[in-house]
């Protein structure tokens, strides 16, 4: 049981990076960016291909990051310069990435068994203490990466450029009136977001010891589910606590999934389960209003 939970935590930490990326576009910029479906697989593809060609795994992860940044830039340019709606821009890049990812890998999947990954140095450490070399190294790397990213973003969104990006998602008209190029801000946001998602994909592939062309499928929904769970369960007082809430949200999501799988739900139904969870979570405010009107009408009837 403990191992199942810890396994979920390790996966959750890796996906937390992706969740933060989704948060940047979905909550800060107000865009549902579907590029991430392709970017996650791209991160996995770049890392797996470079590692199997003998590249240092940390360098490979850095290359994956660069690939993600480029994917975000592509969507950003499609959306701002060519004025294609954000949703469609994301879909276009996502579809294009499918072919690009196949080209990067040369085939539909790459195995990383017995290759050195970012986890290898940590595996050696945990081996000495007779601890699981599957779960703990992933938790360690995930925790370090998440901490670096949370600190970086906390700093970044407090800078002049960061403030301008937040305001752009809030009220682009006002931002232009303050002399800020909103197009640039949208592009920067998309670039950062997809960079994070690619790192997540790279770490995910290395933890699973393989990369697959289908890896990104449904990732946007997982990201959204994690964002919403984080916000609902762990609050959103200030920006730092929000970032932490996102991480906890991603972990909670993985624990929920691990638990429902353990209770006997077929793994094939996972995506349906996730989609329904997100749909219900997104509809919650509407149900809330509906409940309120019913409550009020009862109250009025009782008073009469």
């Amino acid at each position: 049981m403990l191992n199942i939970i810890l396994g979920a935590v390790s996966l959750g930490l890796i996906w937390a990076i992706m969740t933060i990326g989704v948060y940047i576009t979905y909550r800060i910029l107000g865009i549902a960016d579907l590029t991430v479906e392709g970017t996650l697989a791209m991160g996995a593809a770049i890392a797996a291909n470079s590692i199997s060609n003998g590249t240092n795994p940390y360098l490979a992860t850095l290359l994956a990051l660069l690939g993600g940044l480029a994917a975000g830039l592509a969507t950003g340019l499609l959306h701002t310069k060519l004025r294609i709606p954000a949703l469609l821009s994301g879909i276009l890049t996502m579809i294009a990435l499918y072919s690009i990812n196949l080209r990067i890998m040369g085939r539909a999947n790459i195995s990383l068994l017995n290759r050195k990954t970012v986890y290898t140095p940590f595996q050696n450490i945990f081996e000495k203490y007779n601890l699981s070399t599957v779960i703990y190294p992933v938790i360690a790397v995930g925790l370090i990466t998440v901490m670096i990213i949370v600190c970086f973003l906390y700093w970044f969104f407090g800078t002049e450029i960061g403030c301008a990006i937040r305001a752009t998602g809030n009220n682009p008209n006002m931002v232009r009136a303050q002399g800020i190029n909103t197009n640039t801000m949208v592009i920067v946001g998309l670039v950062f977001s997809n960079g994070l998602v690619a790192i997540s994909g790279s770490l995910y592939a290395q933890s699973q010891n393989f990369a697959d062309i289908q890896m990104g499928q449904g990732s946007i929904v997982i990201g959204l589910a994690s964002v919403i769970i984080g916000e609902v369960l762990f609050g959103k007082r200030n920006f730092f606590s929000r970032l932490i809430a996102l991480v906890l949200g991603a972990i909670t999501y993985r624990i929920i999934i691990a638990l429902v799988l353990m209770m006997g739900m077929p793994a094939n139904d996972l995506k349906l389960f996730t989609a329904l969870t997100v749909a219900i979570a997104l509809a919650l405010p509407m149900f809330g209003e509906y409940l309120n009107t019913i409550k009020n009408s009862f109250r009025r009837r009782n008073n009469a």
Binding site: E160, R166, N170, M174, I180
Partner: peptide, 22 residues
């Protein structure tokens, strides 16, 4: 910008016409 603080809004316009930096 409704979701941002009063001081953050003022800070945005205090930099009108200047390049945004880090």
């Amino acid at each position: 910008a409704a979701n941002m603080g009063i001081e953050e809004n003022l800070a945005l316009s205090y930099r009108r016409g200047k390049n945004r930096t880090l």
